[in-house]
Design a protein around this nucleic acid. Sequence first.
DNA 1: GTCCTCCATGTAATCGATTTCATGAGGTTA
DNA 2: TAACCTCATGAAATCGATTACATGGAGGAC
Lengths: 356, 356
Amino acid sequence: MARIKDVAAHAGVSVATVSRVLNDNPSVTEETRNRVYAAMTALNYRPNAVARSLRTEATRTLGLIIGDILNPFFTELARAVEDEARLAGYTVIIGNADERADEQDHYVRTLLERRVDGLLICPTAEVTSLIEEVARAGRPLVFLDRTLPGIEVPSVRVESAAAIGELIGHLKALGHRRIAFISGPATLSTGRERTEAFRAAMAAHGLAVPPEYLEAGDFREGSGRAGAARLLDLPEPPEVIFTGDNLMTLGALGEIRARGLRIPRDVALASFDDVPWFVHVDPAITAIAQPTAELGRAAVRMILNRVEGRPAESAALPAQLVVRTSCGETPYGGGPAAARGAGAGDPGQGDERSRS
Amino acid sequence: MARIKDVAAHAGVSVATVSRVLNDNPSVTEETRNRVYAAMTALNYRPNAVARSLRTEATRTLGLIIGDILNPFFTELARAVEDEARLAGYTVIIGNADERADEQDHYVRTLLERRVDGLLICPTAEVTSLIEEVARAGRPLVFLDRTLPGIEVPSVRVESAAAIGELIGHLKALGHRRIAFISGPATLSTGRERTEAFRAAMAAHGLAVPPEYLEAGDFREGSGRAGAARLLDLPEPPEVIFTGDNLMTLGALGEIRARGLRIPRDVALASFDDVPWFVHVDPAITAIAQPTAELGRAAVRMILNRVEGRPAESAALPAQLVVRTSCGETPYGGGPAAARGAGAGDPGQGDERSRS
DNA sequence: GTCCTCCATGTAATCGATTTCATGAGGTTA
DNA sequence: TAACCTCATGAAATCGATTACATGGAGGAC
């Protein structure tokens, strides 16, 4: 593969001049510039980003470590991060932690060795010593979606309490009283926050939460299924199962279907986290939609601020309740076709996730 | 950040010795080795992969360019590629072409500049001059899922004809005759292959395919919806809509639901490409499942063969029909709960997509 | 015509690792 | 004891770019 030296020789100039052309340095004659361009195309020259990075100490690369690549939430997040980074001229390397601290640490190490300019992490449960060290060393780092206690790192997360409160209000208005929650793991900030918000909202509405109505899940399909099974086996099963993320919803749905129960007549279902196909389940699933794409974009802006030496401030973006029909017909509306969001619209409907 | 020189000074050895320790060179005394390790931890040393790559001309990185990161098919593919690459000690950089040739070319350029050791591409429609050049230059390149005509590049793809033949047989056995197909773009090899297989299977079963029963889609949700709308508006609408990929299925489903039609009574639906939630649609959607993960793993093995100088041979992996209930009850089985795969099982059911 | 300035270009150091070749200490053998 | 070998280690070149500094020629001012 042609090197800068070859281009220089072919064009009859020095490597410095070729480098200047490469970097749009204005102090190169139009004529020389053209000769260099000609040499580049003649030799099929492609600058070696490895060499360049070694010298400039910048890779124009961001590392993104997500929790689970098969979870559509993280996929959409990755997509948004990628798009926003691309606009700024950065490439993204995605690492899939598979919700395991050791996998996460593996990627942190790999990405640091590759000298990414910034690191976006959706941290798994444990605060590993590696993460602590990286944070302490002051390397550009931003937490995404989740946070870790006791670590000083700017973060972008979702503010879920308001939407959860709205959901509980909606359920109460529909006449439901016995509401169960399949939570995410208490080791994750998102799991804790949603559980706390659920408890608080129930209390605010004067509804009791017996301990057996709080199932501890792990943001995986299997735990959603198992949690739903235990809830449905209770002497007094809940009227509503509220699940803490889209994969556990998938599991709970599977269990409900396997028992031949009808939604919402036998048991209602609501999901934290919305995915496109919820609309196509019969009945369509009431869900709390997260501002996933905005979350990713905000995180990129934040990490680039840190990379480029500007200050970065943590942010929390509001989630939004999307009322459909899986918890019963809304008393304030028409039939299934007229189901409408309690918020400014229904971001779960239609083509909003397809791009041009 | 500490460099190899600092470690050498701290341990009282030369940089060559540190490098030897780093690379597990056996000709280093146990004692020296320990001193070097101690220095490394003391200084929090992390080898600079950029510098190493410059010298060794290897990045231990693979590039993967997929068609659309929001399509679960490609996500699962990416996941498998990542896993298999990781086993071999490689990192993967994923580029999302968004089904556009210019985006694809952008990533090809970026990845070449970053000197990835090998390139896995799910090529978009056009044969761009860049792709041609890269193929001609003999750089390690493997086509994944799709192929390009007239370009000598090893590829891994899905053999769909047999499964499509089986599906048509299944539909005919259920009494359906008027079967329409919403195809992928004819510019993609997968689009062409599925359309050809559909025509051939229909002909083999003595069924006619009027031109208006062949809708040209583009593997996007919107075209599935529009195609379904046109088919349902025909004076003689089809009894079955067969869609060419999972996103178009999503669109067609949306259109069918919006019209208040019941599946399969008013119109049956079958999908090429299976995704986990098809099980939860009511009725569950009959689909042709692709060996997605195996596709990704095979592609990695192939590119690593090429990278390491071994020969690589193209492969085609068989798709499999998964019969559910969206085309009607099977005359050879029980009720919905007893729906069973025509093949060796139902890879679309249960937890097979969750990992430990 | 001389001198100074400006500016396009070139020379060479540098980034942090790997790797070839040299070196010298210690052990073996005759 | 001399000659030789083995082996751990070090010195220095190298990968392909960027960039500080040097250089020399053209043009303007006097």
